[in-house]
Amino acid sequence: MTTTPRALQHRARRERTVFQLKSAGGMVLFAASFIAIWHVATAGYEDGGLAPTPLASGQRLIEVLSSAFVHNPPNEVGIVFHLAASLQRVVLGFGMAALVAIPLGLLLGTSRVIHDALDPVIQVLRPVSPLAWLPLGLALLRDSQATAIFVIFMASLWIILVNTIDGVRRVNPLYLDLARTLEATTANRVLRVLLPAALPGVVTGLRTALSTAWLVIVAAEMIVGDRGMGTFVWTEWNAMNINSMVVAILVIGVTGLVLDRSIAQLHRLIPAN
């Protein structure tokens, strides 16, 4: 066996390729057996009824995707418009929550007094399901779009807030001592020391909040939306289009994955060490 660096490098690459092939093969095998079991389990429902079959779901997926951009409301609205409506609400509600929760978290993380004063409120409101805010939102805002955004805001707020506070608490106290010995201005201390040092907590909060927001928007739109992924699920269900449920789950799942992967890029901002 040769042991030149080149040969070792080559062998390592080949081993990696073999490993990747094995994983890919496993994935295909798993998907195939899943569909096979699904097919067997739903045999007898091909002519309709309340169970989606693989074949019918596949057909429905093609139908939905081929009319994705159809825009002829109120009856014909393509999936792209539903998806865009949901994403818009999530981005707005989540963004506003981040704008409130990050500065507030930096404040509460550094001031013990303010933290202890507000903590009971946070602890009581945090475990409340975001959907419980929905009727209140409708009553106060009198607008379904604003209410959906408000629910997302509430769903994201506590998660970002609590994680930011936690991130600030984990900041090496010597960094703050350093800022004091340098007589750093408040702006420099907060923006150039505290925030970057607390970033791991902030990013964890943003990431968790965004996936939670995506979970919540579907449920919220089943109730208030005239458009959105939740509305799509609910109207298709009312039309007994059970095969659409599979399509919806697939679209929601893939979108959630993409959202999570995009916001995970924020981790790159966090310095090593």
Binding site: Y175, D177, N188, A197
Partner: peptide, 24 residues
């Protein structure tokens, strides 16, 4: 300080510069 207490997201030079400009 006992431990070095350099801000890990700044380079060596940026750390020194930060000390020089932190007080505004």
């Amino acid at each position: 300080f006992q431990q070095h207490v350099l801000l890990p997201w700044l380079t060596a030079k940026q750390n020194v510069l930060f000390a020089l400009q932190a007080h505004g």
